[in-house]
Design a protein around this nucleic acid. Sequence first.
DNA 1: TATGAAATTCCCTAAAC
DNA 2: GTTTAGGGAATTTCATA
Lengths: 166, 166
Amino acid sequence: MAIPILLDDFDHRLLALLQDDAARTLTALGEAVGLSPSAVQRRITRYRKHGLLQQVAVLDSTAFPAVVLAAVWVTMERESVRTLNAFYARMRAAPEVQQCYQLAGDWDYLVIMATTSVGAYREAAERLFKVDGNIKRYETRLVFDTVKRGLRLPTQAPSARSRRRG
Amino acid sequence: MAIPILLDDFDHRLLALLQDDAARTLTALGEAVGLSPSAVQRRITRYRKHGLLQQVAVLDSTAFPAVVLAAVWVTMERESVRTLNAFYARMRAAPEVQQCYQLAGDWDYLVIMATTSVGAYREAAERLFKVDGNIKRYETRLVFDTVKRGLRLPTQAPSARSRRRG
DNA sequence: TATGAAATTCCCTAAAC
DNA sequence: GTTTAGGGAATTTCATA
């Protein structure tokens, strides 16, 4: 889907910085990687045009004591293209669904949910995971504590990073 | 930890907008919620000072075909304060660990990992989840497909939103 | 105490090189 | 890739309800 984009060392370092803090100025980014602000800007524009990067605000979940997080494992009864597409559409459309991954193994999907109460979670789960011809079984595990939360991706192997440093 | 912060309707709407796209200008945000750019800026500054919000870049994981995502369930042998703190510190320090949640039920923790190869995942898992006096058991499920990915939190009940609209 | 408007500063953007 | 110039946004100040 996305057009392949070739990344050099500057790109990898910029993407790492931006994943930590996207509010930095082009000047600060340029100083960090050894590039002029204009060069940094051109690169970031390129990332955006390729749909590689989007800037979002991440809220501190502990600041919202009412928020209920839950992990749900799901297995499908039989995966016809039609029912699967419907499931995907439901996951993407539902504001309660934060993340949804297809897994290898006995469980087909992992879904991370976020709601404002256990009641709201129950409602959403019954609506989204109703056991019918599509979904065979699902299990809910409420989140007691958030140890770490982020979406950071490594864009190059750790060995390449340390090799370059050493 | 975080100082409680009282949020009004303007705040809820701003936080919703910012969670979708943190690159909007203060003017655009102000027009969307019916506030002057100055007022919007003051509120966002307040969120930042309270540690409520941070701006990050989220990368399109499909644009990095080499990236391997994995979900790991973990159970602890015996949860002494010392070993637990060590585990928490390890999770937070490891760049391969994206998310880590303590769960209700038979599995104690869910860990979402992101590495640049299956080899790198294996290395990281052996290092982070080594079965010893601390960790009893862990199971890995590789992610085949990402249906949805985000960290959006609802800051107020959906009923409150629709009630206000209707 | 929080607002909106105006003035200043700084940054982003798009040229030209 | 850098440097430069211009427009625009963020930030501060100020008057106000």
